[in-house]
Design a protein around this nucleic acid. Structure first.
Length: 727
DNA sequence: TGTCCCAGCATTTTT
DNA sequence: TGCTGGGACA
């Protein structure tokens, strides 16, 4: 690694920090909670803390563990620390919860009760496996939706519960059924040597808990444990940290309860609240000075978040300028909103700004399309974050499934994925037979298939097809043994005839799929196993690559390289910042989202999400809502979001478009209904003339009537609540 | 066995 | 409105 600077001495290391940050960085050994507000230098404190521990001799790299949630955050922390110390840091455990748990399990697979070559199931693999289990149990998928079962299983694992812990489910058939599915799923995974994401954490936790020697070893080793985004930890992650810390360890937790937005996937905001109670001697430090946003933006954020109850409490402040007011735009509809946003970006660029400076944030991904259309129309380059990532693409997963079978013939998920991909005449009927045999014999699909072929128990056609498949994979396994990884990947694509398979697909898809397969070979060529710390068993190259693919699903979209606008969900924006931010769709039901409003704690989490969005902005913040919006092919008329009312009037400024307003068009209109309307009823509007009622919703004052007006082929949007008259 | 069409469904997402 | 998965059909 190339390092440009000389190592800093301790005072140089502390020089750029403010007093609070410095206090946190130089805390003496002991437990700490750093409440780091948005833009207060959270990562900086973590990195400096690492560097300080190492440089002051307080700890050796071997004695430090640093945990994050994303690979990106882990990589950034490592890089910045190494740059600061001007030397690569060896032996330190730095990574994601899942990555570290995986590392632990690879070394201690025997203690964990896993086969040496266990494979990682990503969410999609897990869902397929769950579905297979449900079908195997001959349960009705409508009553036992695989998605919900997956949710149930992961929920249990996140809480540390095994099927045996669920008790006898008298009186609750739903819970009983789910528990049964969970139990069989667990057996299936264990038999196939498959480990899902939640299992990585739970298994690592249990192994440590039940193995005094191991626990003692790791407790002695890691004198310092640093945790990023503490507010996002779930029950098992926190339990694991507490277990590791024991009596002697030191937990250095950094987080912000106001930015907890992952409650819906198991994050426990309570962890951050109970931590000072669980350990008696926790030093709490608040970082409240913000280096990112203008005072107006901070005022908006502070006032908004103050509406939440039970906060640990923080108030962001800045020495910086007051800045522009926060702009608010009330759009007629979503198209108008998009045009407004793009117009403002164009203006920013005209004035010398970069498109890179601008981010469009929205609550649901479905909102991106209308924005994309507007951007496209203006020929403005943009990049949508999120979506399918590289290792999640079908063609990549197909190729990897072959490799997984090469590595582990008992991997049923991989088997099912490619047994008939490319089509080789093994249809649903035959696969059913295989499943039945596997279930009956308590063996994997591979073994069942091998036995059926050997016994000649299949029909002639199926017999040949299945034998062909078995021989194909065995052939691969035999030949690949001595090959370097990249060559194995290259060969698997050729041997399985995947390119030919995708060629049959219509459109441009085939081309991009083939390019992705080429890219996979490149990825394999460039893949280097993360260096261990010398105490670990070395993994095979193929196993390591497969684990890498599951744990780091790769970028969503290749780097564009050119100056472009960023589009992402509010969740996706966490941790980022932009000079210009547009927060769109501030409407009741959309943001806060209706589904969240129906959940306990949902409204507050939505507010935190809004807080996260606001605090992404450095200079200029635009909020917008639409009176009417087309979503899922339905015209929606929602009230402006409650969050808008909760913002301080003084910092808001409503944007009015000068001159004639060009009214965007839409197919229908709503009206408040004084009288009673029926579907199909003809009505008259003073301006738009004759129309037909196509939708009635609600009663009395809350009633809404949707009317279709058709005038000379043109379609019109009527401002909401126009008066109608029955004709 | 493989393909095509239509019904049902649609927060947020990392590992 | 646009995708997915299951069932009907060739």
């Amino acid at each position: 690694m190339l390092l440009e600077s000389a190592p800093m001495d301790a005072s140089a290391l502390l020089a750029p920090l403010n007093p609070r940050q410095r206090e946190a960085v130089t805390l003496p050994a002991g437990h700490a909670l750093v409440l780091a507000g948005a833009g207060s230098g959270k990562t900086r404190v973590l990195v400096h803390r690492l560097a300080w521990l190492l440089q002051s001799g307080e700890a050796s790299p071997f004695g430090i563990m640093a945990v994050t949630f994303t690979n990106k955050a882990a990589a950034e922390m490592r890089e910045r620390t190494e740059r600061m110390l001007a030397t690569p840091v060896r032996g330190m455990w730095i990574g994601t919860f899942h990555g570290l748990a995986h590392r632990f399990l690879r070394t201690h697979w025997q203690d964990a009760g896993l086969p040496e070559g266990f494979q990682i199931l990503d969410s999609e693999d897990q869902l397929r496996t769950v579905r297979r289990v449900i079908r195997g149990l001959e349960l009705d998928e409508a009553r036992w939706p695989p998605k919900q079962a997956q949710w149930f299983i992961n929920g249990c694992k996140d809480e540390g519960r095994r099927p045996a812990d669920l008790g006898t489910p008298e009186g609750d058939p739903w819970q009983g059924g789910m528990a049964r599915i969970y139990g069989v799923y667990e057996e299936t995974c264990q038999r196939g040597g498959m480990v899902d994401f939640a299992e990585l954490l739970l298994r690592a936790y249990e192994t440590l808990r039940d193995n005094a020697g191991l626990l003692e070893h790791f407790r002695r080793r890691f004198g310092h444990i640093l945790v990023d985004e503490f507010q996002d930890t779930n029950a098992i992650q926190y339990a694991w940290l507490r277990l590791l810390a024991g009596d002697g360890g030191r937990l250095f937790m950094v987080g912000d309860d106001d930015q907890s937005i992952y409650g819906w996937r198991g994050a426990r905001i309570e962890n951050i609240q109970r931590y000072p109670e669980d350990f008696s001697d926790v030093r709490v430090i608040r970082l409240e000075q913000n280096y990112r946003s203008s005072a107006n933006i901070l005022d908006a954020a502070n006032t908004l978040i103050a509406h939440n109850q039970g906060r640990l409490g923080k108030n962001l402040w800045t020495e910086g300028r007051r800045g522009e007011p926060v702009h608010l735009y009330a759009a007629f509809n979503d198209i108008d909103e998009a045009r407004f946003v793009v117009g403002r970006i164009a203006k920013w660029v005209e004035d010398g700004g970069r498109r890179d400076d601008c981010a469009i944030l929205y609550r649901v991904s479905a909102q991106s399309r209308i924005m994309e259309e507007a951007l496209l129309q203006q020929g403005m380059p943009y990049r949508v974050y999120g979506g399918l990532r590289f290792y999640e693409r079908a063609e990549i997963k197909d190729a990897l499934a072959y490799l997984r079978l090469v590595a582990n013939r008992d991997d049923d998920t991989a088997f099912e994925r490619v047994v008939n991909t490319p089509v080789r005449g093994i249809g649903a009927r035959t696969v059913d037979t295989l499943r039945e045999a596997a279930r009956g014999g308590g063996v994997s699909l591979w073994r069942a298939a091998a036995r059926l072929v050997a016994d000649g128990a299949l029909g002639a056609r199926a017999q040949g097809a299945v034998r062909g498949f078995l021989e194909l994979v065995e052939g691969m396994a035999g030949r690949y043994l001595e090959m370097p990884l990249a060559e194995q990947v290259d060969n698997v694509v050729r041997d399985a005839r995947l390119r030919e398979h995708y060629d049959k697909e219509p459109g441009e898809k085939a081309q991009s799929r083939k390019e992705n397969l080429d890219e996979l070979v490149t990825a394999a060529r460039e893949f280097h196993q993360a260096p261990g710390d010398g105490n670990e068993a070395e993994m095979g190259e193929l196993d390591a690559f497969l684990a890498h693919a599951a744990l780091e699903s790769g970028e969503g979209q290749a780097e564009v390289g050119q100056d472009s606008v960023s589009l992402m969900t509010l969740h996706g924006a966490k941790g980022l910042e932009f000079p210009v931010v547009f927060m769109c769709g501030l409407e009741e039901g959309l943001f806060p989202h209706q589904n969240a409003l129906d959940e306990a704690g949902g409204p507050e989490e939505e507010r935190r999400l809004c807080y996260v969005g606001i605090t992404r902005a450095r200079e200029r913040l635009f909020l917008s809502y639409a009176e009417s919006r087309r979503l899922h092919g339905q015209e929606l008329h929602q009230q402006p979001s409650r969050f808008l009312r909760e913002l301080p009037r003084e910092v808001l400024e409503e944007v009015r478009l000068g001159g004639t307003v060009s009214r965007p068009v839409a197919a229908s209109a709503f009206a408040a209904a004084d009288g009673e309307y029926r579907l199909g009823q003809h009505v008259r509007h003073p301006k738009f003339g004759e129309g037909v009622v196509i939708n009635c919703d609600g009663e009395g004052a809350h009633a809404r009537v949707q009317v279709n007006f058709d005038r000379e082929g043109a379609k019109w949007l009527v401002a909401a609540y126009a008066r109608l008259q029955a004709t």
